[in-house]
Structure formats: structure tokens, C-alpha cells
Design a protein around this nucleic acid. Structure first.
Lengths: 218, 218
DNA sequence: GACTCCCTTATTGGATACAATATACGCTTT
DNA sequence: AAAGCGTATATTGTATCCAATAAGGGAGTC
């Protein structure tokens, strides 16, 4: 008998599960800036002691998603527009290079998957999905870059600004433009134009940053 | 009576102290790749329970300095040349931009401090100091960039490759070249040539990467 | 009434104790 | 002797308890 069995408890500790759950909640905007995170409350909610909760909170702090003070507790970290803006610039520096390096190694499967993400993104009607699909689209394209460290750092950066990304897609022309630009990027990748893809990616990011800044001003 | 007293326990938890200590040990090469880190041993060494040790280990893992497996423990993370090389490329992407942005805001004090680092670096006879001074030199110059996120990420990156950086300085012409290039960078900063400083920084990093790769080949 | 001091309470940091899991060794079987 | 199995031991993950600290409220003083 050969059944593929997988034991979740082998890979995930309680701390990890809690971390993931809270991370999701913050990223998706269910927990907002300043929301206090009491160890005991969370422990009760997950039916565990405070120990794994503390580990989860530590990881969240390392990721910059919460800030905590000794003997005072943790709160969901806020990100000023300026801080978010800097992270957009950070992305604008990294992602073009990443995609440039990825293009030569993109298999037809990857391109297909990216295109599907793109389609799904265009058709999705639930704003909650937009953020996810948008992100999956980009990570799919970047996966072939062979730059794991860049991707790791990039993921953390994306986590931090995720609420802003979602907000940006909700702006009047946010989805429309993202969609258009995604298609252009995929096309560039398909035709092997690495530099073009890099350029488009850069514009894509800086455009998002700018539209976000403009909106916040008003 | 007004003495500036600072109570370590107010700002630093045991976990933080342990983290710093182990981080230093790894960075300076006292703990090398694969070295197992037993919670209980460390706890005994610091005269604390395993709880703060676990926190420290978690942070170290987040920084990529150790890798740990459930129920198996943590070991000092190794970094293949390829991985280190990728991080050098990462730096080559970020640091030029950071210094370019910093140049316009460099006060005479900062320039003075950087120059002093440079001098000290040139004169230091203890190879152990080289790494520290080299790093202080760069961080001093970057501080004025107004890009805190970039710097945070950069610091983590530097932590990971620190042993390689030290190794690189120990190569035959490592110090000599680093020294020469540092001076060029400071000069460019002093004369406000941001793009020049960026270019020099990029070459400085890629040069180090290349010489390291060449050496490892042999 | 405002201020200070002290105490109570809520909350986090750390220590000890227990549970879950992996590894190593010896035993059995062939 | 080699392979497979089970137990012993070491090590990590988690729960429970205690200690340290911060925040708030009330009594007393001016």
C-alpha cells in the first residue's frame, strides 16, 4: 500500500499556524494599524498556551508586521504613506532586475500559468481575490529568476505593503491599469524581451506608487 | 545627582543579548557552518532558561543565520559561494541607489566620520577589525539616504555574507583594493558627485564578488 | 481642585515541568 | 553478520506557574 500521506503536524508547529493566521489577517486588512495583540487573547482563541503565541508574535515582529514593546505588548504596525512609498521604490529597484534574469528561463508552462493568473485576475469579481492573484502573477514570473534571496526579501517587502497594494487596486482605474500592464509584461516575456519586461515592470510599480500617493493627497 | 544611567534590562531582554552574542559569533566566524546550537547548552552558558534562548534562535533563523528543523534543533547556516554571490548582486543593486540618494544630504560631519573610518580601516592591523570598520564605513555613508527600509534589508544581507566579506579582505590584494576604492568613494561624495559615487560603489561590490569567486575556484 | 504617592491590576518576561518527537543503541531474527 | 524492530535517551515543543513591569485609580496633602 502506497498512499501519499501527509502529516501537517510534522511540518507546522502551533507557532507557525498562529503566525500564518495573524499574518493573513494583517495582510488582508482584517487587523488594522494599532490593533493591540494580547498574548492571552490569542492563546485562548487558538486554544494553546502563550508560549507558541509569543513565538508567532516574534516572527511577525521580525517581518515588520507588528511592533512590540517590552512589558507593553504588541500592536499591528502601521505604515505611513512615506514608508510604503519607500518600499515601492525598493521593489522598483529589485523586480525589474529579477524579471530580466527570469525571462530567459521561463518555460512555456510558467508563461501559461502567468497568463492564467492574468486572466483570472481580470475576471475576478471579489476584490479580496485581486490582491492574491496580483501577487501570484508576479511571483510566478519571478520564480524562474534563480535568485532565491531576492525573492525572499521581495516577499517580505510585499507582505508589508500588501494593504496598500489592495487599496491601490481599488482605486478608480487601479484594476484596469494593472490588468493592461500585466498583459504587456506577459507579452514581453513570451517574446523573450527581457529588457522590455524589466522596463514595464518598473513602470508598473512606479505607476502604482504614484497613483497611490496622488490618491492619499486628496 | 544626575548621572546618565542606563539600565540594560529596560531596553534589552535576555533574548536580545543572547541573539546579539550568537549573531556576533556567527558573523565573526567563531561558529561555523553546521555547528549545532542546543537550546539547553546555550541556556546553561547564559544562565537562563530555554525560553529566551528559543527567542534568540528564532530571530537568528529569521535573519538567515541559522536553520532549524522541528524537533531536531538548529545549526549554523552555511552559505554556498553561489548564495553569497547572489547576495553580492543584491547589494550591487541596492547600494549604488542608496548612496546616490545619500550624497545630497551628507553633512560635513558625516563625511568627516566616513573619512575617519577610512583612515582607521587603512591603519588597522587586526584583521578582526577590518570587517567591522569596513561595514561602519559603508553604513556611515548610507545613513543620510533617508531610506530606512533599504538600510534595514541591507544590514540583514550584510550579516549573512559577513564571513565572506572578511575572507575577501584577507585575500592578497583585498585590503589594498578596498582601501583605494573607499577613498575614491569618499572623494566622490565630498565633491557631490552622486552618480559617480553610485558607480564606484557598484564596482566596489562587484569587484569584491568577482575576486571572491576567482579565489574560491582555485 | 490639582498634584503626588501608593497600591491594585493587567500584561508581558522568564523558569520549571511535562509532552511529543527524533536518534541511537541493543535485541531479535534470519 | 546484516536487517528489522523496539526501547532508551536526548532534544525540542508546549503548558503552567512565578516574577517583573506598566498603567490606572484612589487616598491624602497642599
Amino acid at each position: 500500500m502506497k498512499i501519499q500521506t501527509y502529516d501537517i503536524s510534522r511540518t507546522a508547529s502551533a507557532a507557525t499556524l498562529i503566525f500564518d493566521a495573524i499574518r493573513e489577517a494583517i495582510i488582508k486588512g482584517d487587523l488594522t494599524q494599532g490593533e493591540p495583540l494580547r498574548q492571552e487573547d490569542i492563546a485562548r482563541a487558538f486554544n494553546v498556551s502563550r508560549i507558541p503565541v509569543r513565538e508567532a508574535l516574534l516572527k511577525l515582529e521580525q517581518h515588520g508586521l507588528i511592533t512590540s514593546q517590552r512589558y507593553k505588548g504588541a500592536v499591528v504596525a502601521g505604515l505611513s504613506l512615506a514608508e510604503a512609498s519607500e518600499i515601492f521604490e525598493f521593489r522598483a529597484l529589485l523586480e525589474p532586475e529579477v524579471i530580466r534574469r527570469a525571462v530567459p528561463h521561463m518555460s512555456p508552462q510558467i508563461l501559461e500559468e502567468a497568463a492564467q493568473c492574468c486572466e483570472a485576475f481580470a475576471r475576478a469579481d471579489d476584490p479580496m481575490q485581486w490582491g492574491d492573484l496580483n501577487r501570484r502573477f508576479h511571483t510566478t514570473l519571478y520564480a524562474a529568476s534563480g535568485l532565491p534571496y531576492h525573492l525572499e526579501v521581495l516577499n517580505k517587502a510585499m507582505d508589508r505593503i500588501d494593504p496598500y497594494l489592495r487599496a491601490q487596486l481599488l482605486l478608480s482605474d487601479g484594476m484596469q491599469r494593472a490588468n493592461r500592464e500585466h498583459h504587456l509584461i506577459v507579452d514581453a516575456c513570451k517574446s523573450g524581451q527581457a529588457d522590455m519586461a524589466a522596463d514595464l515592470t518598473r513602470q508598473h510599480i512606479l505607476g502604482a506608487q504614484e497613483s497611490l500617493s496622488r490618491y492619499w493627497q486628496k
